[in-house]
Protein backbone atom coordinates (compact mmCIF):
# COMPACT_ATOMS: atom_id res chain seq x y z
CA UNK A 1 0.00 0.00 0.00
CA UNK A 2 2.77 2.47 0.83
CA UNK A 3 4.08 2.00 -2.66
CA UNK A 4 0.74 3.10 -4.01
CA UNK A 5 0.72 6.07 -1.68
CA UNK A 6 4.15 7.07 -2.91
CA UNK A 7 2.98 6.69 -6.48
CA UNK A 8 -0.02 8.85 -5.77
CA UNK A 9 2.21 11.51 -4.26
CA UNK A 10 4.48 11.44 -7.30
CA UNK A 11 1.42 11.66 -9.53
CA UNK A 12 0.53 14.86 -7.70
CA UNK A 13 3.61 16.57 -9.13
CA UNK A 14 2.22 17.09 -12.63
CA UNK A 15 -1.09 18.12 -11.10
CA UNK A 16 0.67 20.71 -9.00
CA UNK A 17 2.63 21.99 -11.98
CA UNK A 18 -0.54 22.43 -13.99
CA UNK A 19 -2.18 24.09 -11.01
CA UNK A 20 0.76 26.47 -10.60
CA UNK A 21 0.67 27.47 -14.28
CA UNK A 22 -3.05 28.01 -14.10
CA UNK A 23 -2.84 30.05 -10.93
CA UNK A 24 0.02 32.15 -12.16
CA UNK A 25 -1.48 33.12 -15.47
CA UNK A 26 -4.98 33.65 -14.21
CA UNK A 27 -3.52 35.96 -11.61
CA UNK A 28 -1.71 37.85 -14.35
CA UNK A 29 -4.94 38.23 -16.28
CA UNK A 30 -6.57 40.00 -13.39
CA UNK A 31 -7.05 43.70 -14.05
CA UNK A 32 -5.02 46.15 -12.03
CA UNK A 33 -1.73 45.74 -10.26
CA UNK A 34 -0.46 46.13 -6.72
CA UNK A 35 -0.01 49.84 -7.29
CA UNK A 36 -3.54 50.67 -8.44
CA UNK A 37 -5.12 52.86 -5.87
CA UNK A 38 -2.47 52.10 -3.31
CA UNK A 39 0.11 54.70 -4.00
CA UNK A 40 0.00 58.29 -3.15
CA UNK A 41 -1.31 60.05 -6.28
CA UNK A 42 1.43 62.60 -5.86
CA UNK A 43 4.09 59.98 -6.51
CA UNK A 44 5.92 60.52 -9.74
CA UNK A 45 4.58 58.10 -12.38
CA UNK A 46 8.18 57.52 -13.43
CA UNK A 47 9.05 56.21 -10.02
CA UNK A 48 6.15 53.80 -10.24
CA UNK A 49 7.23 52.67 -13.68
CA UNK A 50 10.75 52.13 -12.38
CA UNK A 51 9.40 50.14 -9.49
CA UNK A 52 7.31 48.00 -11.83
CA UNK A 53 10.32 47.29 -13.99
CA UNK A 54 12.35 46.44 -10.99
CA UNK A 55 9.71 43.97 -9.87
CA UNK A 56 9.81 42.31 -13.28
CA UNK A 57 6.17 43.15 -14.08
CA UNK A 58 7.12 43.87 -17.69
CA UNK A 59 9.02 40.65 -18.38
CA UNK A 60 7.36 38.12 -20.70
CA UNK A 61 4.90 36.03 -18.63
CA UNK A 62 6.77 32.77 -19.10
CA UNK A 63 9.98 34.38 -17.89
CA UNK A 64 8.10 35.69 -14.88
CA UNK A 65 6.77 32.21 -14.24
CA UNK A 66 10.26 30.77 -14.55
CA UNK A 67 11.62 33.27 -12.05
CA UNK A 68 8.83 32.51 -9.68
CA UNK A 69 9.42 28.75 -9.79
CA UNK A 70 13.17 29.20 -9.47
CA UNK A 71 12.71 31.32 -6.40
CA UNK A 72 10.28 28.86 -4.88
CA UNK A 73 12.95 26.22 -5.06
CA UNK A 74 15.23 28.57 -3.22
CA UNK A 75 12.58 28.89 -0.56
CA UNK A 76 11.66 32.38 -1.69
CA UNK A 77 7.97 32.79 -2.34
CA UNK A 78 8.34 36.48 -2.97
CA UNK A 79 7.48 39.57 -1.08
CA UNK A 80 4.09 40.73 0.03
CA UNK A 81 3.47 44.20 -1.35
CA UNK A 82 0.91 45.02 1.25
CA UNK A 83 2.73 43.74 4.27
CA UNK A 84 6.21 44.40 2.96
CA UNK A 85 7.61 41.18 4.26
CA UNK A 86 8.47 37.76 2.83
CA UNK A 87 5.44 35.73 1.88
CA UNK A 88 6.71 32.58 3.51
CA UNK A 89 6.91 34.00 7.00
CA UNK A 90 3.60 35.81 6.62
CA UNK A 91 1.74 32.73 5.44
CA UNK A 92 3.46 30.55 8.01
CA UNK A 93 2.13 32.72 10.79
CA UNK A 94 -1.36 32.89 9.31
CA UNK A 95 -1.37 29.17 8.52
CA UNK A 96 -0.72 28.39 12.16
CA UNK A 97 -3.73 30.49 13.14
CA UNK A 98 -5.91 28.80 10.55
CA UNK A 99 -4.62 25.39 11.56
CA UNK A 100 -5.71 25.90 15.16
CA UNK A 101 -9.05 27.29 14.12
CA UNK A 102 -9.56 24.39 11.71
CA UNK A 103 -8.60 21.84 14.31
CA UNK A 104 -10.93 23.29 16.89
CA UNK A 105 -13.74 23.46 14.35
CA UNK A 106 -13.15 19.85 13.26
CA UNK A 107 -13.09 18.59 16.85
CA UNK A 108 -16.27 20.50 17.68
CA UNK A 109 -17.96 19.34 14.48
CA UNK A 110 -17.41 15.67 15.14
CA UNK A 111 -18.10 16.05 18.85
CA UNK A 112 -21.51 17.49 18.05
CA UNK A 113 -22.41 15.69 14.82
CA UNK A 114 -21.63 12.12 15.86
CA UNK A 115 -23.88 12.05 18.93
CA UNK A 116 -26.64 13.81 17.00
CA UNK A 117 -26.35 11.33 14.14
CA UNK A 118 -26.38 8.41 16.56
CA UNK A 119 -29.43 9.67 18.39
CA UNK A 120 -31.30 10.42 15.18
CA UNK A 121 -30.43 7.07 13.60
CA UNK A 122 -31.37 5.04 16.64
CA UNK A 123 -34.66 6.85 17.07
CA UNK A 124 -35.81 7.00 13.49
CA UNK A 125 -39.11 8.82 13.22
CA UNK A 126 -39.40 9.48 16.96
CA UNK A 127 -39.21 12.92 18.53
CA UNK A 128 -35.40 13.11 19.02
CA UNK A 129 -35.00 12.32 15.33
CA UNK A 130 -37.51 15.00 14.42
CA UNK A 131 -35.82 17.60 16.60
CA UNK A 132 -32.49 16.83 14.96
CA UNK A 133 -34.06 16.88 11.52
CA UNK A 134 -35.41 20.34 12.35
CA UNK A 135 -31.94 21.44 13.44
CA UNK A 136 -30.52 20.20 10.16
CA UNK A 137 -33.25 21.91 8.21
CA UNK A 138 -32.66 25.25 9.89
CA UNK A 139 -28.89 25.15 9.48
CA UNK A 140 -29.14 24.05 5.89
CA UNK A 141 -31.55 26.78 4.99
CA UNK A 142 -29.25 29.54 6.21
CA UNK A 143 -26.12 30.08 4.09
CA UNK A 144 -22.89 29.75 6.10
CA UNK A 145 -21.88 33.38 5.69
CA UNK A 146 -25.20 34.44 7.15
CA UNK A 147 -24.61 32.21 10.15
CA UNK A 148 -21.22 33.86 10.64
CA UNK A 149 -22.75 37.32 10.45
CA UNK A 150 -25.53 36.47 12.85
CA UNK A 151 -23.02 35.05 15.32
CA UNK A 152 -20.75 38.05 15.01
CA UNK A 153 -23.53 40.55 15.50
CA UNK A 154 -25.30 38.62 18.22
CA UNK A 155 -22.43 37.41 20.35
CA UNK A 156 -19.73 40.01 19.95
CA UNK A 157 -21.54 43.20 19.07
CA UNK A 158 -24.77 42.90 20.98
CA UNK A 159 -24.04 40.46 23.79
CA UNK A 160 -20.32 41.26 23.79
CA UNK A 161 -19.45 37.78 25.05
CA UNK A 162 -16.74 37.10 22.54
CA UNK A 163 -14.12 39.32 20.90
CA UNK A 164 -14.72 40.34 17.33
CA UNK A 165 -11.12 40.35 16.18
CA UNK A 166 -7.66 38.96 16.88
CA UNK A 167 -6.18 35.68 18.06
CA UNK A 168 -5.02 36.42 21.57
CA UNK A 169 -5.48 39.34 23.90
CA UNK A 170 -2.48 41.49 24.62
CA UNK A 171 -2.90 41.14 28.34
CA UNK A 172 -2.52 37.37 28.34
CA UNK A 173 0.69 36.10 29.89
CA UNK A 174 2.06 32.63 30.40
CA UNK A 175 1.16 29.45 28.60
CA UNK A 176 -2.14 28.79 30.31
CA UNK A 177 -3.49 32.26 29.89
CA UNK A 178 -2.40 32.46 26.28
CA UNK A 179 -3.85 29.06 25.57
CA UNK A 180 -7.25 29.99 26.91
CA UNK A 181 -7.13 33.43 25.39
CA UNK A 182 -6.49 31.82 22.00
CA UNK A 183 -9.40 29.42 22.39
CA UNK A 184 -11.55 32.30 23.58
CA UNK A 185 -10.72 34.20 20.40
CA UNK A 186 -11.33 31.19 18.17
CA UNK A 187 -14.44 29.81 19.74
CA UNK A 188 -16.98 32.06 18.05
CA UNK A 189 -15.82 31.46 14.45
CA UNK A 190 -15.25 27.79 15.29
CA UNK A 191 -18.78 27.28 16.54
CA UNK A 192 -20.19 29.19 13.60
CA UNK A 193 -18.22 27.08 11.14
CA UNK A 194 -19.01 23.92 13.06
CA UNK A 195 -22.75 24.44 12.67
CA UNK A 196 -22.74 24.24 8.90
CA UNK A 197 -20.24 21.39 9.03
CA UNK A 198 -22.42 19.16 11.18
CA UNK A 199 -25.45 18.71 8.94
CA UNK A 200 -23.83 16.46 6.35
CA UNK A 201 -22.24 14.25 8.99
CA UNK A 202 -25.45 13.96 10.98
CA UNK A 203 -27.27 13.02 7.80
CA UNK A 204 -24.66 10.45 6.74
CA UNK A 205 -24.55 8.81 10.13
CA UNK A 206 -28.31 8.80 10.58
CA UNK A 207 -29.03 7.19 7.23
CA UNK A 208 -26.01 4.92 7.62
CA UNK A 209 -27.49 3.52 10.81
CA UNK A 210 -31.00 3.25 9.41
CA UNK A 211 -29.87 1.61 6.17
CA UNK A 212 -27.41 -0.78 7.73
CA UNK A 213 -29.96 -1.91 10.30
CA UNK A 214 -31.96 -3.28 7.38
CA UNK A 215 -28.98 -5.02 5.81
CA UNK A 216 -28.96 -8.76 5.37
CA UNK A 217 -25.79 -9.23 7.39
CA UNK A 218 -27.51 -7.70 10.41
CA UNK A 219 -30.23 -10.30 9.99
CA UNK A 220 -27.49 -12.95 9.80
CA UNK A 221 -26.03 -11.67 13.05
CA UNK A 222 -29.45 -11.87 14.69
CA UNK A 223 -29.92 -15.37 13.31
CA UNK A 224 -26.65 -16.29 15.02
CA UNK A 225 -28.08 -15.17 18.32
CA UNK A 226 -25.86 -12.12 18.73
CA UNK A 227 -27.39 -9.74 21.30
CA UNK A 228 -28.91 -6.58 19.87
CA UNK A 229 -26.46 -4.25 21.64
CA UNK A 230 -23.48 -6.06 20.20
CA UNK A 231 -25.04 -6.07 16.75
CA UNK A 232 -25.36 -2.32 16.92
CA UNK A 233 -21.82 -1.76 18.08
CA UNK A 234 -20.00 -4.39 16.06
CA UNK A 235 -21.98 -4.60 12.87
CA UNK A 236 -24.18 -1.58 12.29
CA UNK A 237 -22.00 1.23 13.62
CA UNK A 238 -18.82 0.22 11.86
CA UNK A 239 -20.57 0.12 8.52
CA UNK A 240 -22.47 3.32 9.22
CA UNK A 241 -19.20 5.17 9.85
CA UNK A 242 -17.79 4.33 6.42
CA UNK A 243 -19.19 7.36 4.60
CA UNK A 244 -17.95 9.62 7.39
CA UNK A 245 -14.48 8.13 7.17
CA UNK A 246 -14.46 8.73 3.46
CA UNK A 247 -15.47 12.35 3.94
CA UNK A 248 -12.67 13.01 6.44
CA UNK A 249 -10.17 14.09 3.81
CA UNK A 250 -12.77 16.32 2.19
CA UNK A 251 -13.24 18.23 5.43
CA UNK A 252 -9.87 19.87 4.80
CA UNK A 253 -11.23 21.50 1.67
CA UNK A 254 -14.47 22.32 3.44
CA UNK A 255 -12.67 23.96 6.35
CA UNK A 256 -10.44 25.99 4.05
CA UNK A 257 -13.29 27.39 2.02
CA UNK A 258 -15.20 28.00 5.22
CA UNK A 259 -12.19 29.78 6.66
CA UNK A 260 -11.93 32.20 3.75
CA UNK A 261 -15.32 33.65 4.57
CA UNK A 262 -15.39 33.10 8.30
CA UNK A 263 -11.98 34.59 9.01
CA UNK A 264 -12.82 37.68 7.04
CA UNK A 265 -16.10 38.18 8.83
CA UNK A 266 -14.65 37.53 12.26
CA UNK A 267 -11.44 39.46 11.47
CA UNK A 268 -9.46 36.44 12.45
CA UNK A 269 -5.93 36.75 11.08
CA UNK A 270 -5.66 33.43 9.28
CA UNK A 271 -4.91 32.28 5.76
CA UNK A 272 -8.48 32.77 4.66
CA UNK A 273 -8.59 36.38 5.62
CA UNK A 274 -5.17 36.89 4.12
CA UNK A 275 -6.35 35.33 0.89
CA UNK A 276 -9.28 37.67 0.42
CA UNK A 277 -7.13 40.65 1.30
CA UNK A 278 -4.48 39.60 -1.17
CA UNK A 279 -7.03 39.28 -3.93
CA UNK A 280 -8.43 42.71 -3.20
CA UNK A 281 -5.05 44.37 -3.12
CA UNK A 282 -3.62 42.39 -6.04
CA UNK A 283 -0.90 41.10 -3.76
CA UNK A 284 0.18 38.53 -6.33
CA UNK A 285 2.85 36.64 -4.46
CA UNK A 286 0.58 36.05 -1.51
CA UNK A 287 -2.43 35.21 -3.61
CA UNK A 288 -0.60 32.78 -5.85
CA UNK A 289 1.17 31.05 -3.02
CA UNK A 290 -2.04 30.65 -1.07
CA UNK A 291 -4.00 29.31 -4.02
CA UNK A 292 -1.25 26.84 -4.69
CA UNK A 293 -1.21 25.85 -1.04
CA UNK A 294 -4.99 25.37 -0.98
CA UNK A 295 -4.72 23.25 -4.12
CA UNK A 296 -2.02 21.05 -2.64
CA UNK A 297 -3.95 20.67 0.59
CA UNK A 298 -7.02 19.59 -1.36
CA UNK A 299 -5.00 17.00 -3.26
CA UNK A 300 -3.52 15.75 0.00
CA UNK A 301 -7.01 15.66 1.49
CA UNK A 302 -8.21 13.42 -1.34
CA UNK A 303 -5.23 11.14 -0.87
CA UNK A 304 -5.89 11.06 2.85
CA UNK A 305 -9.50 10.07 2.18
CA UNK A 306 -8.39 7.23 -0.04
CA UNK A 307 -5.83 6.03 2.49
CA UNK A 308 -8.37 6.12 5.30
CA UNK A 309 -10.92 4.27 3.20
CA UNK A 310 -8.47 1.56 2.25
CA UNK A 311 -7.69 1.08 5.92
CA UNK A 312 -11.25 0.92 7.20
CA UNK A 313 -12.91 -0.85 4.26
CA UNK A 314 -11.25 -4.06 3.10
CA UNK A 315 -13.17 -3.92 -0.19
CA UNK A 316 -11.39 -0.76 -1.22
CA UNK A 317 -7.84 -0.86 -2.43
CA UNK A 318 -6.21 2.43 -3.06
CA UNK A 319 -5.47 2.85 -6.73
Amino acid sequence: MWKTVLRRILLMIPQIIILSLLVFFVAKLMPGDPFSGKINPQTDPKTIEALKHQLGLYDPPLVQYGHWIQNIFKGDFGQSYTYNRPVLGLIGERAANTFWLGLLTAVLTYAVAIPLGLIAGKNEGKWPDRVIAFYNFVINSVPPFAIYLIFLILFSFILKIFPSTGTVSASAHGFVQIFFSRIYHMILPAIAMMLSGTTAIVQYLRSGIIDNTKEDYVRTARAKGVPEKVIFRKHILRNAFLPIASSLGGTITGLLSGAIVAESIFSYPGMGQLFLQSVNSRDYSVMITLTLLFGILTLLGNLLSDIIMSIVDPRIRIQ
Partner: peptide, 10 residues
Protein backbone atom coordinates in the same frame (compact mmCIF):
# COMPACT_ATOMS: atom_id res chain seq x y z
CA UNK B 1 -27.95 -13.75 -1.14
CA UNK B 2 -24.64 -14.94 0.24
CA UNK B 3 -22.86 -11.65 -0.39
CA UNK B 4 -25.18 -9.30 1.42
CA UNK B 5 -25.68 -11.82 4.22
CA UNK B 6 -22.08 -11.42 5.37
CA UNK B 7 -20.66 -8.32 7.02
CA UNK B 8 -18.30 -6.78 4.45
CA UNK B 9 -15.98 -5.36 7.09
CA UNK B 10 -15.42 -8.53 9.09
Amino acid sequence: DPLSALNPLM
